[in-house]
Structure formats: structure tokens, C-alpha cells
């Protein structure tokens, strides 16, 4: 399989601040590549470099085999980009925005109209085509932005947090559309800070403070990086949290909804029993202890803490 994106030791500095730190990964054609990480971890910066909008400070990045900085102009027609923040014209209508970008990508007018009605159908934009973008709510603006970025059928699509700030229905629609695009053979590079959206991706990379801390399929992420996850339900929950934080066999404890998720260092069949024993000796009341499959958020919290520890506690490692 050909590589749609190749990144080697990519670093981006803003003055003294390192926003992207020696990052390497690659994306194969046809993948839905999820780029995860909390706010400020360097996702948008990486995407902007890949779109030729920012120069890399060091390292290499290639899109379709072309250097993103030197050959930026040759890449333009082959990529679509939906920025994190709405970047279309407030004082143009939805249809006018679409028409404008169709013109810039030199989509022939007849084809542009056909694509517009097709996209209006898929993204349910029909009723708002003649409304000024200014009057739309976030969900609709995001739909318009997505439509604009795929008008010219780019083989590679960059979506920067397409689902941030949108309602659950739009969110689901977006992932359906992303799935359809991938089905047509379009490579999708999508960032999100909502870890559980990662389930929709074929492969993931996780960013934290500008570093890439893990990479793999969602399945690999769950099984390789987190050993054993136990969920404890209790009322009140705080004593459980405190009791487990002190236990030596517990790697991580975190609140998850109204339960506690604890990651353990031992193997699975023993885990529930160990936790129950721990809670009983500490004299803490609980309702239920069950082993669970770790969610992507668990994976991230666990990985992030592991990365933070050496800087936080110095000689710990």
C-alpha cells in the first residue's frame, strides 16, 4: 500500500516553545487516521505543516510522496482541509461559499452544481443553501466547511476537530460521511480531542505535549498499552478513589462517569479479587467490582500519566 502521509522527526518551534517534538508516523492510502490528543498537544500545528501552511523547523513531511514545504503548490489540488476554526465567509451564503471554492479548485460549473446538490443531500444542507453563513449555528457551519473541503474530491482529506462543538446528531452524521469517504478510497486524516471518537478510525496516533506517545489500531491501543482495567461502583465514590490510589499494584485510578476505573499491574482473572480485598481491608464500602475493556479515554489517561511522570517526579525512572 502506498503512503499518503509520511512524517519523520518533524519538529515545530514557535520561539523557544516546541509545539511539535520529533514526531514520526505514516498514513497509508485509504486509512481513516485518527490524530488524538488534548488541546494544545500539537495536532493543529502538525496538520498545518502537512497542508503547507507552516514551515517545519526540522524533520520531513511528505504528502503523496511530495515534500509539503518545497512542493506545497503541487499538493494543493490533491488535498482537502477543514480548519479547526470556521474559515469561510460569513457574508456569503452557503451556496456562494461552495461556488467560490469550486471555482478556486476549477471544478467545472456543471459538475460543481451536481456536487453541491449531492453534498447538500448527504450533509442535509439543502434548506440553508441561501442563508448567509453568519446566521448559521456551529453544527451547520461545520457541515458547510466539510462540504467545501471535499468539493474537489481530494484523495487526501485533513479534518481538524470537525466534530468539536457540534450536537450528537451532527457528530454521528460526520462519522458516517467520513466512513463513506473512506469507502470511496479517500484517505482521511482527522484530529479530535474526544478520545471515544477514535473507535471510528482504522488507525490512531496519540499526541501529548507535542510528542507522539502511541500509535496503532484502536484494538492495539487498548490491549497493548493498558494491562488490566477494573471498574468499581460505589456510593460514595471518593473513599474508593483514595484507597486505590495508595495501593502498590494499582498503576492508575481515574474517575469515569460516576464510577472509578483502576488500571492494575497484574493479569486479568486475579484483578477483581485483588481490588475487592484491598477495599475490604481498607474498610471502604462498594457495590460492585468488574473487569472492563478499557475505553480510549482510559488508554489516553494511562499513557499520558506515564509520560508526565518522569518530568513531574524527576528520578522516578
Amino acid at each position: 500500500m502506498d503512503l499518503a502521509v509520511e512524517v519523520e522527526n518533524l519538529t515545530k518551534r514557535f520561539g523557544d516553545f516546541v509545539a511539535v517534538n520529533e514526531v514520526s508516523f505514516s498514513v497509508a492510502e485509504g486509512e481513516v487516521f485518527g490524530f488524538l490528543g488534548p488541546n494544545g498537544s500539537g495536532k493543529s500545528t502538525t496538520i498545518r505543516i502537512l497542508c503547507g501552511l507552516l514551515s517545519p523547523s526540522s524533520g520531513h513531511a511528505r504528502v503523496a510522496g511530495l515534500d509539503v514545504w518545497r512542493d506545497a503548490e503541487r499538493i494543493r489540488q490533491r488535498i482537502g482541509y477543514m480548519p479547526q476554526f470556521f474559515s469561510l465567509y460569513d457574508d456569503l451564503t452557503v451556496a456562494e461559499n461552495i461556488e467560490f471554492y469550486a471555482g478556486l479548485y476549477q471544478v467545472p460549473p456543471a459538475l460543481a452544481l451536481a456536487r453541491q446538490s449531492e453534498l447538500a443531500e448527504v450533509l442535509e444542507l439543502g434548506p440553508v443553501l441561501d442563508r448567509l453563513a453568519r446566521t448559521l449555528s456551529t453544527g451547520w457551519r461545520q457541515r458547510l466547511a466539510l462540504a467545501t473541503s471535499i468539493l474537489h474530491r481530494p484523495p487526501l482529506l485533513f479534518l481538524d476537530e470537525p466534530t468539536s462543538g457540534v450536537d450528537p446528531l451532527t457528530r454521528r452524521l460526520f462519522w458516517e460521511v467520513i466512513g463513506d469517504l473512506a469507502h470511496e478510497g479517500i484517505t482521511v486524516f482527522v484530529t479530535t480531542h474526544v478520545m471515544d471518537e477514535a473507535e471510528h478510525c482504522t488507525r490512531l496516533a496519540m499526541m501529548h505535549y507535542g510528542r507522539l506517545i502511541a500509535e496503532g489500531t484502536p484494538e492495539e491501543m487498548r490491549t497493548e498499552h493498558v494491562q488490566t482495567m477494573v471498574e468499581v461502583q460505589a456510593h460514595p465514590i471518593w473513599p474508593v478513589l483514595q484507597a486505590l490510589e495508595k495501593a502498590p499494584e494499582v498503576v492508575e485510578v481515574a474517575l469515569f462517569g460516576d464510577a472509578v476505573h483502576a488500571e492494575l499491574r497484574c493479569d486479568l482473572n486475579d484483578a477483581e479479587a485483588r481490588v475487592e480485598r484491598k477495599l475490604q481491608t481498607a474498610g471502604v464500602a462498594y457495590e460492585r467490582v468488574v473487569a472492563v475493556t478499557p475505553s480510549m479515554e482510559d488508554v489516553f489517561v494511562s499513557l499520558a500519566r506515564r509520560w508526565e511522570r518522569p518530568t513531574a517526579a524527576g528520578a522516578d525512572r
Partner: peptide, 13 residues
């Protein structure tokens, strides 16, 4: 400043 240049600059314009 309005951010629209970001989208404009990834096009072949």
C-alpha cells in the same frame, strides 16, 4: 485576521 485566509491558502490560487 478573520481566519479565512487559512482556507484560501490551501487552495491552488
Amino acid at each position: 485576521e478573520g481566519g479565512t485566509l487559512e482556507q484560501l491558502m490551501v487552495t491552488p490560487l
